[in-house]
Structures are given as C-alpha cells and as structure tokens.
C-alpha cells in the first residue's frame, strides 16, 4: 500500500514510522482508558525512542565514510550511558556506577575489542556500531539482572551471611553462594536466546543482512556469532562483578551493609 504512494526511501520510511507510531498510540490510548498507568508513558517513550534512533542514524550517516576508529568514542559513550541505567536499577548500592562501568568495559568492551581485532566483527562503521551496540545493550540487561538478583539474595539470606561472618568467614566466602545464584540467574535469558535461536527468535540483524543481499547461510551463521558474543560479554561482566561486588556490599570492617 504505502509503497505505491511513496517512492523515495526516506519518504517511505517516514510514512512507515508514522503509521506504526499511530497504531501504537491508539493501543496506548485504549490501555490508558482501561486504567493502565503505563499508558501515559507510551507516547513519550515512542517519541524518545524515535528521536534517539534518528539521532544515531544521522550520526551513522555522517560517520559512514569516516575511518573505523570513530566508532570507538561512540561505543564508549554507549557503555557510559548503559552504566547510568544499571545504576538506576540498584540505587542504594554504593559505587554501582563505577562497578557496572568496570564490568561492562571488561564484558562488552573486551569482547568488541577482541572480536574486532580478530576480524569477527566487521570494522566498517556500518557494522561495528550496530553490532557493538547490540552487545552493549544486552550486556546492560545482564548486568542489571545480576546486581538486582544479588541484592535480593543478600537481603533474603542476611541470617546465613551474618552467621558465616560470625564464624570468622571472609566476606567473599560468606556471599559466595549468592554471587553464584545471581550469576546463574542473570545469564538465563542469554542462554535461552541461544537455545531458541532460529526457532522462537530470528533477530533483527539477520533480517537486515538478508535485505542487503547476504547469503542466508552466512546470515544464519553470523546470527549465531552475535548471540555467542552477547553471552560471552555477559559472562565476562558478571565474572568481573563477582570479584568487585563484595567490597561494595560490606563495610571496611566486614559488616554486611543494611538497606541495600
């Protein structure tokens, strides 16, 4: 339908965005009238999402012909912003921002660096930025899940942890079972994505590669590559968190902090 009316790619894109935006707004209005409070946030979220992705699109358009390393500041900014979002999930954890910054630098940062150097992520901006951002975004979710779960575990096992401390345990030893539980829980979504890959879920990048004419087998393989990188980055960031988190949840006199 729309294709018949709009002939340039840009006008078509605007029309497509307008159409789905309008349908989303109708759903938002319906849910708002049914009393769902989230309804009021949806128009704002739509506008915000559209503005952000357009901004990135324009930056990509500017950078597209530039040298590959211009992607580095862009990805770094993404990691910094991701860390502020993780911090909002655990507002009472001291030093949550620097903690997640370190963890995601080791996880997403490390994986992007190594994989780009190894030639597994194409270093052309048009590939490096979207693939990198996918790894960072998923890493952010995993990191939030980890810290969120960890604090919940600590709160519900305060008695066991303080019993261990009272027996003279190192703080790291006293919380080891709960770090492990958080580690496991935070990687469940990434693991399930790998397990359901292609069956329940054919992610966007594959569609993109198919649209731009890549062979379906290569697009499929690359899809696996990306999920495996997301998993690796998540695992690395949680391993880092396992080492760094204990010092944030205990005082320097080895007391478990309250009200985390």
């Amino acid at each position: 339908m729309l294709r018949l009316l709009f002939h340039t790619q840009l006008s078509l894109g605007i029309a497509q965005a307008g159409f789905v935006g309008a349908t989303a707004l109708i759903v938002a209005m319906l849910s708002w009238r049914r009393g769902a409070r989230a309804g009021a946030e949806i128009p704002l979220a739509l506008v915000r999402g559209l503005a952000q992705i357009l901004l990135i699109g324009s930056i990509l358009a500017l950078l597209m012909r530039g040298p590959w390393w211009t992607a580095i500041p862009l990805l770094l900014v993404m990691i910094f912003i991701a860390a502020t979002i993780v911090r909002q999930r655990v507002p009472r954890l001291p030093g949550a921002y620097t903690l997640s910054l370190w963890c995601m630098s080791a996880g997403a940062g490390g994986v992007i660096l190594v994989m780009a150097a190894a030639g597994i992520i194409d270093t052309r901006i048009a590939m490096l930025v979207p693939v990198g951002s996918m790894i960072i975004a998923q890493n952010m979710n995993i990191q939030s899940l980890f810290l969120n779960r960890l604090l919940a575990e600590l709160e519900s096992h305060r008695g066991e942890i303080e019993s261990a401390l009272a027996l003279g345990a190192q703080p790291e030893a006293a919380v080891a079972p709960y770090l492990q539980a958080a580690f496991h829980a935070s990687l469940i979504p990434a693991t399930d994505n790998l397990r359901s890959l292609g069956i329940v879920w054919i992610p966007g990048i594959m569609t993109g590669m198919l649209l731009s004419g890549a062979s379906p087998i290569y697009a499929a393989l690359y899809q696996f590559v990306i999920l495996a990188m997301i998993f690796t980055a998540g695992g690395l960031s949680c391993l880092t968190a396992t080492r760094l988190a204990p010092s944030r949840v205990f005082t320097r006199f080895q007391q478990l902090r309250t009200g985390l």
Binding site: G159, E162, S163, L165, G168, A169, Q254
Partner: peptide, 18 residues
C-alpha cells in the same frame, strides 16, 4: 574482625544452618 569473631562465638535466635 575475623579473629575477633572467631574468639567471640555467637549463637542466634534462629540456627541459619548452611
């Protein structure tokens, strides 16, 4: 703190076994 806690053993209201 660890040495102090080894020398001052504590038993709480609930056992909290591992």
């Amino acid at each position: 703190p660890r040495e102090l806690r080894r020398r001052l053993g504590m038993v709480m209201q609930r056992a909290f076994l591992f």
